[in-house]
């Protein structure tokens, strides 16, 4: 089996055993967006501690298994109803943007598509524009997804500072994938039970839109979810007879190409090839 990347997984909610199993399955790297903890945090200090965990503790925990850990910082859409708290958190984020595993601002987005959520989303875009950060976007769940994705694309297109090739719109499904791709954005398909995509439907989407600017992730978190969902997606691609090159592009090359644009990006050391010479484009693990 070849290496893969899970570009969206909330390892803070997962056990160390999950890191081990992901390493067994050849996970080379993960990125962990800041998200909702399952309850609304009461203070900006709570987020400060969370960001310390994302930028310090988790990379060290992942490194034990030779998995590279990257992260994204923001206050998520569910807590964005509290605009005052959101502004305090947004003001604190620059303190962490220089940390070596930070890829950019995310996962920002909408949840119930409210005015406050849109305000805080736009203020995250304002923050990202200051230092030209990469942006990772959460799109809403279930009946809110289509409307919310349209609203998000409206805001992105309304902001002349936004560079579509530096934005990834996540959790796309059959009815939203083209909204992202047609706008020139990257996109992510989330393999998550009940509320998002199954591996089979994700492969259907790939068969319909191709392999450019698209990736797959597990969004593994504290809910019922599977940190090995990307390997399951790989198996589904193989079951349908898709080539190793197409599989690798979606689960490794694409997330890596998107991440490589990050301001803090440091190239990975070359991966030894089978004949003992270094290959320039690939790498597997560890800072």
């Amino acid at each position: 089996m070849s290496f893969y990347i899970d570009p969206h997984i909330h390892m803070i909610s997962r056990t160390t055993d999950d890191y081990q199993r992901m390493a067994y399955a050849q996970c080379a790297a993960v990125s962990e967006p800041a998200f909702w903890a399952g309850f609304d945090r009461g203070t900006a200090a709570g987020f400060h501690d969370y960001f310390r965990s994302l930028t310090d503790f988790e990379p060290r925990r992942a490194a034990q298994f030779h998995i590279r850990h990257y992260c994204w910082l923001c206050i998520n859409a569910k807590e964005a109803e509290n605009v005052t708290l959101s502004r305090e958190v947004i003001a604190m984020i620059p303190e962490f943007l220089h940390m070596p595993n930070v890829l950019g601002i995310g996962e920002i987005g909408l949840n119930k598509n409210t005015r406050n959520e849109a305000t805080v989303f736009q203020e995250h875009l304002d923050l990202a524009a200051k230092t030209d950060e990469l942006i990772l976007i959460h799109t809403p769940h279930l009946e809110d997804k289509y409307k919310g994705t349209r609203m998000i694309v409206d805001m992105l297109k309304n902001d002349p500072r936004v560079k579509p090739h530096r934005v990834c719109i996540d959790h796309v499904e059959e009815h939203t994938v083209r909204l992202a791709l047609d706008g020139g954005f990257w996109c992510g398909m989330t393999l998550y039970p009940t509320t998002k995509c199954t591996p089979a439907r994700a492969v259907d989407i790939i068969e319909m839109v191709g392999t450019d600017r698209i990736m797959a992730n597990s969004a593994g978190d504290w809910g019922k979810s599977d940190p090995l969902a990307v390997p399951e997606f790989i198996q589904e691609m193989k079951r349908r007879g898709h080539s190793e090159a197409d599989i690798r592009k979606v689960v490794y090359d694409n997330p890596l190409a998107f991440w490589r644009q990050a301001n803090n990006w440091k190239e990975w050391p070359p991966e030894p090839s089978r004949n003992g010479t270094a290959t320039p484009q690939t790498a597997k693990a560890g800072y």
Binding site: A118, L125, K147, R150, N158, H175
Partner: peptide, 26 residues
């Protein structure tokens, strides 16, 4: 041929193109 997409849209809320967008601080 796009039954999955049609069912997704069936279970989706309506989008209003005239919604009031927040403006960027340029």
């Amino acid at each position: 041929p796009n039954r999955a997409e049609q069912i997704q849209k069936l279970f989706s809320l309506e989008y209003d193109a005239g919604w009031v967008r927040p403006q960027p601080r340029l």
